[in-house]
Amino acid sequence: MNHDQHPNDSVLTQDLRDSLCELTTPERPTLAAITTRGRAHQRRRLAGFASLGVVGAAAGTALALGLTGILGAAPARSTSTIQTMAFTLVKHANGTATLTINTNVLLDPSTLQSDLEQDGIPAIVNTGSFCSSDPSPAGFNQVTAAPKPAPGAPLDFTINPAAIPAGTELSFGFFKLANVQGSGHAGEETVIGLIDTNSYNCASTPPASGYANVVSIPGGPK
């Protein structure tokens, strides 16, 4: 038994497991239902590639950096590019990555988090909450640069994973707010920061403007 454990923890653990076993579950869906839904995901990923191409053309240069090499003659399935409806993550030869958030599509935080991880970018991604450390670790400005999005345009970040200090990771928070940064208007806000992996707290509201090592950007996924 671990020294932190209460003597009755094993009893409580068993009680919790027993309680879970008593939970009556409805009939499992058919495999065909799951695979049909899975195929829909794959189709949306492919459709996301097509729609992002349209957005990129309409938005002019904003997407050009992130999508260089994949909107032209290069094949869509580049091993260094992950594309979904909500975001595109491009890993460049120099080790940096470009993350482009499509502000018109609902974002799945777990998908973005796992895809960032796959590209060597440790991060916690949340919708409706933001995790931060106090004090916040130094080095954020070397890790990523704040985008300056136009209304309705995608958010575009360049991230340098090599600059992420050991024991830290990026934190992304995507919010829908009734009053964005005191503007009096409802909308989306994206907050990014660097946190200590072993010491952070999460809150359901964005941090106050000017919080160290945090960038707040009006706009974000729906």
């Binding site: 239902a33 799951i34 839904r37 899975g38 195929r39 995901h41």
Partner: peptide, 10 residues
């Protein structure tokens, strides 16, 4: 969970 399994399949 159905959605998660669909994503797992994909």
């Amino acid at each position: 969970v159905a959605e998660a399994f669909a994503r797992a399949w994909a």
